[in-house]
Amino acid sequence: MSEPQDLIPLRPVDLQILLVLANANLHGYGVMKAVREESGGRVGLEVGSLYRVINRLLDSDLIEQVAPAAGSDDPRRKHDYAITELGRATVRAESERLAQVLATARARDLAGRA
Protein backbone atom coordinates (compact mmCIF):
# COMPACT_ATOMS: atom_id res chain seq x y z
CA MET A 1 0.00 0.00 0.00
CA SER A 2 1.46 3.34 -0.93
CA GLU A 3 1.68 6.39 1.25
CA PRO A 4 0.72 9.86 0.16
CA GLN A 5 4.32 10.89 0.69
CA ASP A 6 5.36 8.47 -2.01
CA LEU A 7 3.02 9.94 -4.53
CA ILE A 8 3.90 13.61 -4.30
CA PRO A 9 4.76 15.86 -5.97
CA LEU A 10 1.80 15.43 -8.29
CA ARG A 11 1.65 16.62 -11.80
CA PRO A 12 -0.42 19.78 -11.97
CA VAL A 13 -3.07 18.14 -14.13
CA ASP A 14 -3.32 15.20 -11.74
CA LEU A 15 -3.88 17.53 -8.85
CA GLN A 16 -6.48 19.44 -10.80
CA ILE A 17 -8.50 16.36 -11.48
CA LEU A 18 -8.26 15.11 -7.94
CA LEU A 19 -9.54 18.44 -6.70
CA VAL A 20 -12.43 18.29 -9.07
CA LEU A 21 -13.31 14.78 -7.97
CA ALA A 22 -12.94 15.69 -4.33
CA ASN A 23 -15.91 17.89 -4.89
CA ALA A 24 -18.19 15.38 -6.57
CA ASN A 25 -18.17 12.12 -8.47
CA LEU A 26 -18.07 12.77 -12.17
CA HIS A 27 -17.87 10.91 -15.44
CA GLY A 28 -15.22 11.54 -18.06
CA TYR A 29 -16.72 14.53 -19.82
CA GLY A 30 -17.85 15.92 -16.52
CA VAL A 31 -14.27 15.99 -15.32
CA MET A 32 -13.22 17.80 -18.48
CA LYS A 33 -15.85 20.44 -18.02
CA ALA A 34 -15.13 20.88 -14.35
CA VAL A 35 -11.41 21.22 -14.88
CA ARG A 36 -11.98 23.86 -17.50
CA GLU A 37 -14.29 25.81 -15.28
CA GLU A 38 -12.23 25.64 -12.17
CA SER A 39 -9.10 26.74 -13.91
CA GLY A 40 -10.90 29.62 -15.51
CA GLY A 41 -10.41 28.18 -18.97
CA ARG A 42 -6.65 27.98 -18.64
CA VAL A 43 -6.37 24.22 -18.38
CA GLY A 44 -8.04 22.74 -21.40
CA LEU A 45 -8.01 19.02 -21.20
CA GLU A 46 -8.97 16.98 -24.23
CA VAL A 47 -10.31 13.47 -24.23
CA GLY A 48 -7.07 11.78 -25.24
CA SER A 49 -4.92 13.27 -22.53
CA LEU A 50 -7.71 13.10 -19.99
CA TYR A 51 -7.88 9.37 -20.05
CA ARG A 52 -4.15 8.98 -19.81
CA VAL A 53 -4.35 10.82 -16.54
CA ILE A 54 -7.37 8.85 -15.41
CA ASN A 55 -5.47 5.69 -16.23
CA ARG A 56 -2.55 6.87 -14.15
CA LEU A 57 -4.69 7.90 -11.23
CA LEU A 58 -6.56 4.62 -11.29
CA ASP A 59 -3.32 2.67 -11.28
CA SER A 60 -2.10 4.64 -8.29
CA ASP A 61 -5.34 4.07 -6.43
CA LEU A 62 -5.98 7.76 -6.14
CA ILE A 63 -9.37 7.46 -7.79
CA GLU A 64 -11.77 4.62 -8.38
CA GLN A 65 -14.62 3.69 -10.64
CA VAL A 66 -18.07 3.76 -9.06
CA ALA A 67 -21.61 3.20 -10.20
CA PRO A 68 -22.96 6.09 -12.18
CA ALA A 69 -25.21 8.61 -10.59
CA ALA A 70 -28.88 7.95 -11.05
CA GLY A 71 -30.67 9.83 -13.78
CA SER A 72 -28.07 9.59 -16.50
CA ASP A 73 -29.68 8.96 -19.84
CA ASP A 74 -26.67 7.60 -21.70
CA PRO A 75 -26.44 3.79 -21.57
CA ARG A 76 -22.75 3.90 -22.35
CA ARG A 77 -22.04 5.72 -19.15
CA LYS A 78 -21.00 2.73 -17.20
CA HIS A 79 -19.34 4.41 -14.28
CA ASP A 80 -18.29 7.62 -12.70
CA TYR A 81 -15.04 8.40 -11.01
CA ALA A 82 -14.63 9.09 -7.36
CA ILE A 83 -11.68 10.13 -5.31
CA THR A 84 -10.41 7.57 -2.82
CA GLU A 85 -9.27 8.05 0.69
CA LEU A 86 -5.71 7.75 -0.46
CA GLY A 87 -6.52 10.36 -3.03
CA ARG A 88 -7.79 12.76 -0.44
CA ALA A 89 -4.80 12.16 1.77
CA THR A 90 -2.48 12.75 -1.12
CA VAL A 91 -4.21 15.98 -2.06
CA ARG A 92 -3.80 17.10 1.51
CA ALA A 93 -0.12 16.23 1.50
CA GLU A 94 0.42 17.97 -1.78
CA SER A 95 -1.43 21.04 -0.57
CA GLU A 96 0.78 21.21 2.45
CA ARG A 97 3.84 20.93 0.32
CA LEU A 98 2.62 23.64 -2.01
CA ALA A 99 1.78 25.82 0.95
CA GLN A 100 5.31 25.51 2.23
CA VAL A 101 6.70 26.36 -1.18
CA LEU A 102 4.39 29.33 -1.39
CA ALA A 103 5.39 30.51 2.06
CA THR A 104 9.05 30.36 1.14
CA ALA A 105 8.37 32.21 -2.06
CA ARG A 106 6.48 34.92 -0.21
CA ALA A 107 9.24 35.23 2.35
CA ARG A 108 11.58 36.01 -0.47
CA ASP A 109 9.19 38.42 -1.98
CA LEU A 110 8.60 36.37 -5.04
CA ALA A 111 4.94 35.60 -4.75
CA GLY A 112 1.86 37.72 -4.51
CA ARG A 113 0.06 38.39 -1.27
CA ALA A 114 -2.42 35.80 -0.09
Binding site: H27, G28, Y29, M32, K33, V47, G48, L50, Y51, I54, N55, D74, R76, R77, K78
Partner: peptide, 28 residues
Protein backbone atom coordinates in the same frame (compact mmCIF):
# COMPACT_ATOMS: atom_id res chain seq x y z
CA UNK B 1 -9.24 4.99 -35.85
CA UNK B 2 -7.23 7.52 -33.91
CA UNK B 3 -7.49 5.51 -30.71
CA UNK B 4 -5.47 2.81 -32.41
CA UNK B 5 -2.52 4.91 -31.34
CA UNK B 6 -3.07 3.65 -27.81
CA UNK B 7 -1.83 0.27 -26.67
CA UNK B 8 -4.39 -2.50 -26.77
CA UNK B 9 -4.87 -2.74 -23.03
CA UNK B 10 -5.60 0.93 -22.75
CA UNK B 11 -8.06 0.77 -25.62
CA UNK B 12 -9.90 -2.08 -24.04
CA UNK B 13 -10.24 -0.13 -20.87
CA UNK B 14 -11.26 3.27 -22.11
CA UNK B 15 -12.19 3.25 -25.77
CA UNK B 16 -15.94 3.31 -25.33
CA UNK B 17 -15.78 5.86 -22.55
CA UNK B 18 -13.70 8.08 -24.75
CA UNK B 19 -16.28 7.82 -27.48
CA UNK B 20 -18.90 8.83 -25.02
CA UNK B 21 -17.01 11.82 -23.68
CA UNK B 22 -16.08 12.83 -27.19
CA UNK B 23 -19.67 12.89 -28.30
CA UNK B 24 -20.71 14.99 -25.38
CA UNK B 25 -17.86 17.32 -26.13
CA UNK B 26 -18.95 17.60 -29.74
CA UNK B 27 -22.55 18.21 -28.77
CA UNK B 28 -21.61 20.99 -26.42
Amino acid sequence: SATLAYPLAFRRRFASEMQCAFQERCSD
